[in-house]
C-alpha cells in the first residue's frame, strides 16, 4: 500500500478507536470553557468552533512533524518533563481565563473591547490542548518516532485530528444551553477548579515526584 495512504489510514483508525479516551481527557477543559463563553447565535458558535479546532489542528500538525523529525534524526523520545510542562501551561491559561471572568470582568475594563488574549482564547485553548499528552497522543508519537519522517508525521496527525475531533463535536451542541449569566459563572468557577487541580498536578509531578 502507498505509505501516504497507509499512514493516513493508521491516523484515522487511531483517532476512531481511541477518540473516546481523547474526549475524556479534553472534556474537563472544554466543557467549563464552553459554559463560560457559550454563544447563543449560530454564527458566533461556528466561530468559536473554528477557532478551537484551528488551534488544535496546528498543535497536532506541529507535534506530528516534530515527532517525525525527532525520530528521523535521533531515534529519541520526547523529554520526560514535556507532559508536565504542557499541562502546567494549559492549566495556567485556564486559571487565568477563569480568574479574569470571575474577578476582573466588571472592573476597570468594563467598556473596553475584549483584549486580544480573550478573543483568541478558543484558539489558544485548542492549541494548548493539542499539545497535551493523552494516551492516544502518546501512541501516535511513539509510532512517529519509529517511522522517523516529518512529512508522514504531519499527515498521520492530520488524520488523527479529523477522526478524534468527531468525539468532541457533540459537546458544541450543548453550547446553546449555556445562555444564562448564572451558568456562565458556574462555568468559570468550574474552569477555575479544573485548572487549579491540573496546575497542582503538573507542578507536583514536575518538582516533587522525581
Amino acid at each position: 500500500m502507498n505509505p501516504l495512504v497507509s499512514i493516513s489510514f493508521e491516523g484515522l483508525m487511531l483517532g476512531l478507536s481511541t477518540g473516546s479516551v481523547c474526549a475524556t481527557t479534553c472534556f474537563p477543559f472544554l466543557l467549563p470553557y464552553l459554559m463560560t463563553e457559550g454563544k447563543s447565535g449560530l454564527r458566533k458558535q461556528a466561530f468559536l468552533l473554528l477557532k478551537f479546532f484551528s488551534g488544535r489542528l496546528i498543535a497536532y500538525l506541529l507535534a506530528g512533524g516534530f515527532a517525525g523529525w525527532l525520530g528521523g534524526r535521533f531515534r529519541g523520545r520526547f523529554p520526560e518533563s514535556f507532559h508536565d510542562w504542557a499541562l502546567i501551561v494549559l492549566a495556567g491559561a485556564m486559571v487565568f481565563f477563569a480568574s479574569e471572568r470571575l474577578f476582573f470582568k466588571k472592573t476597570a475594563c468594563l467598556r473596553s473591547p475584549k483584549p486580544f488574549v480573550s478573543r483568541q482564547f478558543p484558539f489558544l485553548l485548542g492549541f494548548l490542548m493539542g499539545w497535551n499528552v493523552c494516551p492516544p497522543f502518546l501512541i501516535g508519537i511513539d509510532r512517529l518516532l519509529e517511522i522517523g519522517n516529518p512529512a508522514l508525521g504531519t499527515i498521520f496527525f492530520f488524520a488523527f485530528f479529523i477522526s478524534s475531533s468527531l468525539y468532541l463535536l457533540p459537546l458544541f451542541l450543548l453550547v446553546p444551553l449555556f445562555s444564562s449569566d448564572r451558568l456562565r459563572t458556574v462555568g468559570a468557577m468550574t474552569a477555575l477548579l479544573v485548572g487549579s487541580g491540573y496546575l497542582a498536578k503538573g507542578v507536583f509531578a514536575l518538582f516533587f515526584s522525581r
Binding site: T24, P32, R182, T185, V186, M189, T190, L192, V194, G197
Partner: peptide, 26 residues
Amino acid sequence: PRGARDFSLALLIAVMLLSLAKTQPV
C-alpha cells in the same frame, strides 16, 4: 457574595469531569 451559592454545582461538574479524565473517584 453573588454566585457563591453555586460553588457546589461548579464543584460537582469539576469532580465529575476530573473523575472521568483520571478514571478515579477524585
